[in-house]
Write a protein that binds this DNA or RNA. Sequence first.
DNA 1: TATGAATGAGGCTTCATTCAT
DNA 2: AATGAATGAAGCCTCATTCAT
Lengths: 199, 199, 199, 199
Amino acid sequence: MVTPKKNPAGTGRRAELLATAAEVFAEQGYNATTVRTIADRAGLLAGSLYYHFDSKESMADEILSAFLTDLWQGYQRIEEACLPPRETFEGLVTESFRQMERHRPAVVIYQKEARRLAAQERFRYLSDSQERFQKLWTRTLERGVADGSFRRELDVPVAYRFVRDTVWMAAVWFRPQGRKSAAQIAEQYTSMVLDGIAT
Amino acid sequence: MVTPKKNPAGTGRRAELLATAAEVFAEQGYNATTVRTIADRAGLLAGSLYYHFDSKESMADEILSAFLTDLWQGYQRIEEACLPPRETFEGLVTESFRQMERHRPAVVIYQKEARRLAAQERFRYLSDSQERFQKLWTRTLERGVADGSFRRELDVPVAYRFVRDTVWMAAVWFRPQGRKSAAQIAEQYTSMVLDGIAT
Amino acid sequence: MVTPKKNPAGTGRRAELLATAAEVFAEQGYNATTVRTIADRAGLLAGSLYYHFDSKESMADEILSAFLTDLWQGYQRIEEACLPPRETFEGLVTESFRQMERHRPAVVIYQKEARRLAAQERFRYLSDSQERFQKLWTRTLERGVADGSFRRELDVPVAYRFVRDTVWMAAVWFRPQGRKSAAQIAEQYTSMVLDGIAT
Amino acid sequence: MVTPKKNPAGTGRRAELLATAAEVFAEQGYNATTVRTIADRAGLLAGSLYYHFDSKESMADEILSAFLTDLWQGYQRIEEACLPPRETFEGLVTESFRQMERHRPAVVIYQKEARRLAAQERFRYLSDSQERFQKLWTRTLERGVADGSFRRELDVPVAYRFVRDTVWMAAVWFRPQGRKSAAQIAEQYTSMVLDGIAT
DNA sequence: TATGAATGAGGCTTCATTCAT
DNA sequence: AATGAATGAAGCCTCATTCAT
């Protein structure tokens, strides 16, 4: 993780530049994005970015760690509420969609680049998060199988992947300014995943 | 699409090299892959690849178009069978998982790079395939809603994306040599998607 | 040469900054030193240095010309004293070591960078000094050979370089706060050079 | 240290390029030298150097380690001969000048850049060599003091530096194609250092 | 006096590609 | 079929310098 050099939160020039960078990374992919593209879009010269950031990598770092920090704060509230499995499930999905509203480009980047980036020491926290994520969902699914909320024959590891992919892939096409709010989309998703699309 | 310079099908040095290239593209991403990496892994020098292929791009092209050709042959059989919606659904999922067994790296590449590549004229067929895919699934879902196999209130565009993402993302972690066969995985998926994971 | 913008001598903020710059140049080399390093060490921002100095080059200029001015003042006293060769020799060595005490970083810079810098018009005085230096030492050595103080077979150009290198290289490791004073080091050097290290 | 990728010794394109690089480094200093300058002088494009070498640094590495390897081979013969101090002294000086004939640019680079480069792990061997060098000379000087070949009151650490600087600085101006051979220069040096320049 | 933000030139390096052999 | 050597464009980054505040 990286701690921003100055300013409190998402304010000031740094934050602006990070937002721009995140958009471009999300659109074109981390590798395919050149610092010049980011700079052009932000209205300065490529070299000038280095007044604000150490490297292209550290921009990605800051974007991803800010997202994951927020995400885990949200998840933690749900964990601590100790709800029954089905409510926990709904809570996690809703929280995920809510974070997409704030961090949509970050989610796309996470989705596309996490595996590659996680190989580097500096992005270690990506694997950590991944692992924590898996534990959280797996526990929830298992609790549901145990108390009968979820189907007895559920293959938990497969179901975990199913849920994980389904939820996060949505970030790629989900547009907050679209007709549906995050909460509405979350509800549809939950319904489909829990009850299926068949009658 | 691209027509191989020589040899009929997946035989000979070309095919070997393509397989190697596909693996590396899948592992590291198209942009992050250098022709040197491919060459190293195949045991020749980077420049020597150009005896076999016109460019890095044409390798990706050949890999992707071979995959899509096979995939659509499979889908076509199912379309032509004119089965009821639920059976069509099962057939498409099973066929998708079956193609993953043959073309796993190609699927991963498709998943990760299609959007970016499709911008180029030469990869136009990627968008075409995407569109055809959408029509096929949407039609199937709509037929199911109409005949009562699928839930009346189903939001078809959302459900389409749901299914699409779920199925193809599996390619990233699905390993054919794993404990489960493609058919088994397909069955689990179908069951989850159609009937949900809740009781 | 450069004339300081304001303040008379080695006083005030300018002088402080110059001292810092000299230290860094000496430690890391002129090219390898960034103005940011100097600024960091002095406790201001890189851009702020430009309130005090025209350029990085002009800092080096001021450092070197201050040193050479002092050095030649010292040498001149010895020249004017018209001592016999051996005493002149001793005097020059002692004076050189004395200047090292005041201008140690400048000496190191001079030693390492003079040749490169001298190519620029603005540092012309470095070559001039070099030439004057050579004449002074050569004359002294020749006088010594002529009057029998120095060995008859002495190859004066070689001996000149020998003395020059020996004396100035000492600046790199010589530390005034060490156990030995400049005068003591000078005496040891003089003894070694004049009488050799063998019995 | 670095081991050349291929070819036995100083032959082939690599060796040519290294020789060019060494010259430029020696003339302009390592930092002030751009890879473009080296490439221009060698008649290719800057990027093409990277077919032969990993980095600018690795060129310097190869140049310096080749020099030090040869140098220590020469020194070792002298150490093993177990000559009396004065003869050892003469032998070391002569060997040093001889290596200058083969590796003149390397010596200049060593002289100017060793301290800075040695800070990096990859150039660790520079410090090692430096230390070994100090031990060798110090031992020789001490033996000479002990057996009466050198003056009893000799300050060995100071004398060591004196000799070290004197010998290696010569590399900067010494030209093998000049009127004097390495052996002749070595003899003059030895005579000056051992017996002094005074009568 | 100093800061914060930027410029613009240039440095090192990578990489797809070419081509004579 | 493949190698060895090179090209040329482009990428990331550094750094001296400028300037409004």
